[in-house]
Design a binder for these strands. Structure first.
Lengths: 226, 226
DNA sequence: GTGCGCGCTGTGAAAATGCTGAGAATTCAT
DNA sequence: ATGAATTCTCAGCATTTTCACAGCGCGCAC
């Protein structure tokens, strides 16, 4: 497993590097933001440990640039600040985890192992299907630059569909994920809300994003593939 | 997205629940370990937030049991202790993330979003027979890039055949698996539906995928062998 | 070659399914 | 409390799906 460590404090960098090597990782160290960015572009890493305070280019910028370039390598951010909003920022930029300095090596190792175990690369925080874009954090939906207003229920339904593009979803399944547990009404609500959604996201644009599978349920057409 | 919150402290639970609901999650709350375990077994959750200190059954045990049962729902652990080894333990048990109390809601939200983002992209098995491909998850069937629309019954029948390629299947056997157990109609429906299938998946392509074994039943010709 | 039984298919009716408009119930902000 | 937005129920309608039936054809045994 190859790890890129981007950290400008030599003593900390060296200590972490030794430990990682002892635990069987192949480690490259970069001491500045630009160096880190260059290295991450240059070679395929399994993990990146990225300090936020860096000379030349902040860790935020490095991460942002990588993600913008479509590089979804798992990244753990290191921060000296402990303000809670910093973490949220890091996550929004596409970090997979973060650690507040000072941290113990064993915690770092546990986090790295957890990321490796997950294996699955992180994905962008917005969901797309063709020119339809849904941002869970902002609770916004737009189709080709046009903002679309959805009610909470409509939004949850669309989000659920968009997290499973191309999959056949039954009405009971949708009901179980989008409605409350104690809801015991009729499947028909799903039909009704699918209808609402279609009237907002499809009909005005002459598209067909939500397909009906008669006798089964529904399927979101994933415009991005094929 | 449906979240299960397992937390015994009512004030905290209620506060988190409100916030999550406001952010568009469908939330169920369990106050004890056994209740949490029961709920997680009972319904399909997209996320579980699990306190470690719980009456009846600790969060560790709950998580351990779920994982042992093959339930891989993403889990965030909450712990009041801050010993570093606790985190490592949680990860080793199969938690996907953890949070030390007290935590701020915004951090919890960011973690949950990050977990959702990673999602479960593992979409396994499709069934193949030559250039005929059936995808159970998408409920789609295609022959050489051409999508073929099947009714639910036709789909079930074809899926059953394709799961037993090359095997001789009698009509009563097919009836028992594709139709309801208590169905007591005539064998003839099978012939009818085999006919429907052939007209959709074979005739238009000049193929012969389903072979009739006179006096026996049917057999799917597995084009990939020979 | 002939006859029989098995399998195939067209017709049509019954059942199931999904969509929609109308409006009731509920929630929420003011 | 009032009104607006949202959620949900319900019933009618259109369409699709399922299935029974009956006649036909063809393979197979003799």
């Amino acid at each position: 497993m190859r790890v890129l460590l981007v950290e400008d404090e030599p003593r900390l960098a060296e200590s972490v590097r030794r430990n990682l090597v002892a635990d069987g990782f192949a480690v490259d160290v970069a001491g500045t933001g630009p160096d880190g960015l260059w290295a991450a572009r240059e070679r395929p890493y399994d993990l990146v440990v990225l300090d936020i305070m860096l000379p030349g280019l902040s860790g935020y910028r490095v991460l942002e640039t990588l993600r913008a370039e479509g590089n979804w390598v798992p990244v753990v951010m290191l921060t000296a600040k402990d303000g809670e909003y910093d973490e949220a920022d890091a996550f929004d930029l596409g970090a997979d985890d973060y650690l507040t300095k000072p941290f113990s090596y064993i915690v770092l190792l546990a986090r790295l192992r957890a990321l490796l175990r997950r294996g699955a690369p992180a994905r962008p925080s917005v969901l797309r299907a063709g020119d339809l874009v849904l941002d869970p954090a902002r609770r916004s939906v737009r189709r080709a630059e046009t903002e679309i207003a959805l009610t909470p229920r409509e939004f949850s339904l669309l989000e659920y569909l968009m997290r499973r593009p191309g999959e056949a979803l039954t009405k009971p399944d949708i009901l179980a994920h989008v409605w409350d547990a104690q809801y015991d009404g009729d499947d028909n609500v799903v039909e009704v809300y699918i209808g609402y959604l279609r009237r907002k996201i499809d009909l005005p644009f002459g598209r067909q994003t939500i397909e009906t599978l008669r006798g089964i349920g529904y399927r979101l057409i994933d415009g991005s593939r094929r």
